[in-house]
Design a binder for these strands. Structure first.
Length: 813
RNA sequence: GCCCGGGUGGUGAAAUUGGUAGACACAAGGGACUUAAAAUCCCUCGGAGAUAAUACUCCGUGCCGGUUCGAGUCCGGCCCCGGGCACCA
């Protein structure tokens, strides 16, 4: 009987579901734990993508392998189901997002199961389930109580098309990340989470994580720590000080003008009457610009003079105070000292407006361009005759000296700044978690904990109002909170949380998903956390991974979780491109539908091929031909183990002795598969399986115990086939919890090794010698070879390099 | 512009600490089986030269140089591709 993936795969998928094969023990004292997690998906209407499958296959292989290695494995799946698409669909069709979500979840789940993944479905979670978002709201309460949540009138990214406020991270080049619609700035009252309080903690935590270096780098850059000085400049004719932040106090002698951001509060008091009109119209202009307009590069810098002067604290000279929108109110103090000689932006501005450029670091030509070298570059023109001279010092030394002087003379103090901004945490949407908050007069209060969850009410209209208020604000009987006498005692917060909220802690809920008394029990959390392996796409490098780390750090500080960092090891799967080498997209018509692939070739072939394509973390093009190769391989495996009638092949028996080569390959394969799975090198693991099976195919007889081992070690990759083999071998249980076989190191070592013989580093011959032969024996044998003699006879051997069991090299002169 | 990745056959890719470059597959070509096709099996497969020979020689891991007995691997400079950030003072 030939291999029939349809009957085999549906049979075992049914078996696994009926027997709850993959259900993990809650807390096991006898087994060590292993928590392997996928980034849970948003269940979109488009269904599962071959790219989703890539990461899921990888984690499934690890999960199945670890079970065989004796671990109690937590391998759960759930749904990040709040989000814009379902809401947009609701606006268009009136279908409740709950309905859409449920349909999509069912479809996703069906597709996921058809790939033979070993998820523990008893732990399935859905972020839109009130039993889940109750606890999302509860965590918000903890953040609120810790003073990390506050309300603020801020200029937000308003997208008129989506009728929604977007986070900075959801705006790309002035357009919405979803849909690519224009985004403008609009002031609105918003909830903000003080992630900046955790900037240092989030930066520190990165050091010990087993994460890809580039992801750590991205987070570091995003947090953007810089060390510098905050110092005050006196204003000529005023008692106010202008505070600036600089990382280059060594260049203070070159500070030849100042710039304030147009939003700076001091502007109105220091602008001169003569300049007032010009300044005010500039400020008005700036207000109209979007962030994108303001930060777009290659844009000409603009600004206006305020008519006032500041005093450079080092030179005591008067310098002009300007306003310009190239200075951002949101970073540092919103004002800068400009050093055009050594800062490109200041140089551009000074050149345009003919402001003085002073050279204080030697080595460039400041009349042509800013000279920005640091480190060993020498400071010049930097003494004030009295108490300070930086001349002759290099930049690094001068920074230290300048800081000492600044602090001693109470001009300012050393400070650390971060690029990281606070997290805009409210959205004007329906389909999100409501906040557990009530507005009473001017105050905001948390609702009592026992009133959780704040249920999302039914609405008729999913559209936000035109002024950007959430659709919830239109439901008076929900918004108004009344006492027993029907008096209105407060109004509910009508914004909802962003989609990130649910995914910030779902990995904690998986440890105790059905707990109705608390978000998670201490015992379960303590046993399962941290996540040992977390696999997902690189697109979440900063957002999801930074936000969830932030919440986790807070929960850790509150004593609610046992580890500071939630994800010990992180790995990113690469993208699967279309067969034309470009990104899969409907418009290019190069999208591969996993359902069609599985229908024709089966889930095992699909799994095996996705792992064989190349390194997990690399992008690589899809090839249906390549997939067919894996399908052929699976058929080959089938033909080794099964005969024409579908019974165990007569070649396999207990009464055969394996030959040396078979044993060698067998043990080598067990070893390599184990090592490759541990290091996530699945492509080379598949190669090794192919090498072994190519050999087995040629054998006339194979010992049964080798086939038993083989069935076990293929299980992580092709679980359906593995189960089928196991049952052919006469077992009635699932193969899932069989022990991963041990290998015998002695059998992998050969007694005869091939040694490369080189002359001056060029290969001239190969010889076969006994393992661990001593140099003398190998040399004498090598010298008898004709081709070696040919190249050594021209000169004399001046040196011999011998690497045992590998190589012999004669250096001839 | 800055910060990360990455450039190896026709293609996807292998290659422990520097130690026989191209494992394993795909495609291609040839052969066997078959009335035929599919499926399957066997052989060839980086380039050039040479040969009776699958003896052998030279070149070859983006480019140029260096270190070394020996470099895909280490060092310096450059080119190209992918990703991220982008006036953060």
């Amino acid at each position: 009987m030939s291999y029939n993936h349809k009957s085999i795969e549906s049979k075992w998928q049914k078996f696994w579901l009926e027997n709850q094969t993959f259900r993990s023990e809650d807390v096991s004292s006898s087994k060590p734990k292993y928590y392997v997690l996928d980034m849970f998906p948003y269940p979109s209407g488009a269904g599962l993508h071959v790219g989703h499958a890539l990461g899921y296959v990888a984690t499934d292989i690890v999960a199945r392998y670890k079970r065989m290695k004796g671990f109690n494995v937590l391998h759960p799946m759930g749904w990040d189901a709040f989000g814009l698409p379902a809401e947009q669909y609701a606006i268009k069709t009136g279908t409740h997002p709950k309905v859409t979500t449920q349909q999509n979840v069912e479809n996703f789940k069906k597709q996921i199961n058809s790939l033979g993944f070993s998820y523990d479905w008893s732990r399935e979670i859905n972020t839109t389930d009130p039993g889940y978002y109750k606890w999302t709201q509860w965590i918000f309460m903890q953040l609120f109580n810790k003073g990390l949540a506050f309300e603020q009138e801020v200029a937000v990214n308003w997208c008129p098309e989506l009728k929604a406020v977007l986070a900075n991270e959801e705006v790309v080049n002035g357009k919405s990340d979803i849909g690519g619609h224009p985004v403008i700035r609009l002031p609105m009252k918003q909830w903000i989470l003080k992630i900046t309080d955790y900037a240092e903690s989030l930066l520190d935590g990165l050091d010990d994580l087993d994460w890809p270096e580039n992801i750590k780098e991205l987070q570091k850059n995003w947090i953007g720590r810089s060390e510098g000085v905050e110092l005050g400049f006196e204003i000529d004719g005023s008692n106010d000080l202008i505070n600036v932040y600089t990382t280059r106090p060594d260049t203070l002698f070159g500070a030849s003008y100042m710039v304030l951001a147009p939003e700076h509060t001091l502007i109105h008091s220091l602008v001169s009457d003569k300049q007032r009109e010009e300044v005010e119209s500039y400020i008005e202009e700036t207000k109209k610009k979007s962030d994108f307009d303001r930060t777009e590069i290659n844009k000409d810098k603009t600004g206006v003079f305020t008519g006032s002067y500041a005093i450079n604290p080092f030179t005591r000279k008067k310098i002009e105070i300007w306003i310009a929108d190239y200075v951002l109110i949101s970073y540092g103090t919103g004002a800068i000292m400009a050093v055009p000689g050594h800062d490109e932006r200041d140089w551009d501005f000074a050149s345009k407006y003919n402001l003085p450029i002073v050279e204080v670091v030697e080595g460039g030509d400041v009349s042509k361009a800013a000279f920005t070298a640091k480190g060993n570059a020498k400071i010049i023109n930097s003494s004030n005759d009295k108490t300070l001279s930086l001349d002759g010092l290099n930049v690094d030394q001068a920074i230290k000296e300048a800081i000492i002087y600044i602090e001693k003379n109470s001009i300012g103090k050393a400070t650390v700044n971060y690029k990281l901004r606070d997290w805009l945490f409210s959205r004007q949407r329906y389909w999100g978690e409501p906040f557990p908050l009530i507005h009473k007069d001017d105050k905001v209060e948390l609702i009592p904990e026992e009133d959780l969850p704040v249920m999302l009410p039914e609405v008729k209209n999913y559209k936000p109002s035109d002024d950007g208020k959430s659709p919830l604000s239109l439901i008076n009987n929900w918004v108004e909170v009344k006492d027993e006498n029907s008096n209105i005692i407060g109004l509910r917060e009508t914004n909802t949380m962003p989609q990130w909220a649910g995914s910030c802690w779902y990995f904690l809920r998986f440890t105790d998903p059905n707990n109705t008394n608390e978000a998670w029990s201490k015992e379960n959390e303590n046993y399962w956390m941290p996540v040992d392996l977390y696999i997902g796409g690189q697109e979440h490098a900063v957002l999801h991974l930074l936000y969830s780390r932030f919440w986790h750090h807070v929960l850790y500080d509150l004593g609610l979780v046992s580890t500071k960092e939630p994800f010990k090891k992180l790995y990113n799967q690469g993208m699967i491109l279309g067969d034309d080498g470009t990104k899969m997209s409907k418009s290019r018509g190069n999208v591969i539908n996993p359902e069609e692939i599985m229908d024709e070739y089966g889930a095992d072939s699909m799994r095996l091929y996705e792992m064989f394509m190349g390194p997990l973390n690399k992008s690589k093009p899809w090839s249906t031909k390549g997939l067919q190769g894996c399908y052929r391989f699976i058929n080959k495996l089938w033909s080794i183990i099964s005969d024409d009638e579908g019974f165990l092949s007569s070649k396999i028996s207990n009464d055969v002795e394996p030959d040396k080569e078979t044993l060698f390959l067998h043990h080598q394969t067990i070893k390599k598969l184990g090592e490759d799975i541990e290091s996530l090198h699945f492509n080379t693991a598949v190669s090794q399986l192919m090498i072994y099976c190519n050999h087995l195919q040629k054998c006339d007889s194979i010992p049964k115990d080798l086939i038993e081992d083989l069935s076990i070690i293929i299980c992580p990759f092709v679980p359906h086939l593995s189960e089928e083999f196991w049952s052919l071998l006469g077992h009635s249980d699932s193969i899932t919890y069989e022990s991963w076989p041990d290998y015998d190191e002695n059998l992998i070592e050969l007694d005869e090794v091939t040694i490369a013989v080189q002359v001056n580093g060029k290969l001239r011959a190969n010889i076969s010698v006994a393992k661990d032969s001593i140099e003398k024996d190998v040399v004498s044998k090598a010298l008898t070879l004709e081709n070696v003699e040919k190249f050594t006879s021209d000169g004399s051997i001046v040196k011999t390099i011998y690497i045992a069991n590998r190589l012999l090299n004669f250096v001839v002169k």
